[in-house]
Amino acid sequence: MTAATRAVLRTEVRLFTREPGTLFWVMAAPTVLLVILGLIPSFREPSADIDGGRRVIDVYVPVSVLFALIMAGLQAMPPVLAGYRERGVLRRMSTTPVRPAALLTAQLALHAAAALVSAVLVITVGRLAFDVALPGNVPGYALALLLATACGLALGAAVCAVSRTQKIATAIGTASFFPTIFTAGVYIPVQAMPDTLRQIIQFTPYGAASGALDEAAGGVWPGWFALGVMALWTVVLTGAAVRRFRWE
């Protein structure tokens, strides 16, 4: 990494910290969600509705982790990138020795890092406050988490590529907010959904991620099907984003 691309990354991190709304929704809201659910006494008791007789709070740790990924990739990032294009920030940068791709890369890296930090915060608070076991299969969990992050960013990049303006990017983010958090299991954990719905949802990016994280949390290697679904979405969405993206 050259000094100039480092300076771009540093600048984007600094600008990220100047967005209180983004900071709250990406960094704090997932943990807040977990804490609120954890304060409900029955959620800390084993539940008959969930496989293996686990507690609701146990399955909500992966759900809150996914919530962080959705916030970073789909809600926070697309409006920033679409705005940069709309305001001519990318165009201005393309007249300097630094390629505007450096700015996109910095944004992707920044939102990936923010999502992962938020995820680690959720896992830590789950462990310390509600005694939720740490992921049983750490490499499997890490792989699932990285794939889910990549998938979320690819989704965000695709949204940015098809949105001509910042307004459209924000609108798509808002419209897709409820469906995506539903498939991630924020309303009902995927593990507690009726079978048919579960069958369908496992094909969605966050439904697959939810399955993989849940398995790895339980101590087994996540199923190749779920990992494959995420990998496929990542490849397809990245391809679409690259093809459809316009610099101006």
Binding site: T11, L15, G88
Partner: peptide, 10 residues
Amino acid sequence: LQQSELQPKL
């Protein structure tokens, strides 16, 4: 450039 802005919070 005739029309270009920078990041608003920079």
